[in-house]
Design a protein around this nucleic acid. Structure first.
Lengths: 120, 120
DNA sequence: TATATTACCCACCAATTGTTAGGTACTATA
DNA sequence: TATAGTACCTAACAATTGGTGGGTAATATA
């Protein structure tokens, strides 16, 4: 997840959309491959970096770091660093992060339904 | 949106995730930049290709075509071609497509809330 | 002294997603 | 004959997203 070049057409299209459509806006924020899964684990309480990694079997450390940073920037999670060695960092949802619960629920319900339909 | 190389690590990670997490599964299906916006327009009734294009100011024809194809593959929309010249093609949501309504609603609500929080 | 532990960072690369700019077919109308 | 209209398609490119494999610090324990 490199820098976004704010001059690109991609960027301005996404921006224009996000301005008008809250659903498009929302999906640029929580649309990453791992975002919702991380949030759904955090819904049940704070977790350390290493704990999260174990819950997400295929994620690389780099990806987890990047996603957590992005979530932090968007104020969805709070990061707490304890001055210890070895280091200890805890992540937890903010209020707006917890507010994702109904979104996640709706997506899960729909996902289940859609999956049944297509697996047949 | 080219072919997905089904041998890639990306692909198998996404697959593994989708198997376990219906919310991750759902977001691979409706996570595209335009997907939800298209669906939210179709929630109010069937539309022709050209009508959709007018509603989505910045979309290119290619993108619209690709997105509609993907939605069709995923059985979210139905495509009806009328044998006329000039051609006439109509798109409408399937039942599982309409079932996205609560998802879109939840995302909109959350998006609005999040936007207020961060603009402030 | 060597190794383990934790939560990262970095450079480089592969894959996916989106855009640009050019087509096409076929009919109707000017 | 020239142009317009609709719903596409194609090749080539730009941008973003995700993965691989290496590294770091500082302390504790063997």
């Amino acid at each position: 997840m490199s820098e976004i070049k704010q001059t690109s057409t991609n960027f301005s299209n996404k921006n224009a959309l996000s301005d008008e459509c809250p659903e498009a806006y929302a999906s640029t924020i929580i649309g990453g491959q791992w975002t919702l899964v991380i949030c759904s684990w955090l819904l049940s309480g704070k977790l350390r970096f290493g704990e999260l990694r174990k819950k997400l079997p295929n994620i690389t450390e780099r990806m987890l770091t990047l996603q957590l940073r992005k979530l932090e920037e968007n104020m969805i999670i709070k990061r707490t660093v304890y001055a210890q060695v070895p280091p200890r960092v805890e992540y937890e949802l903010t209020p707006i992060g917890y507010a994702l619960k109904p979104v996640i629920k709706a997506l899960e319900d729909w996902g289940d339904r859609h999956k049944k339909l297509t697996n047949k």
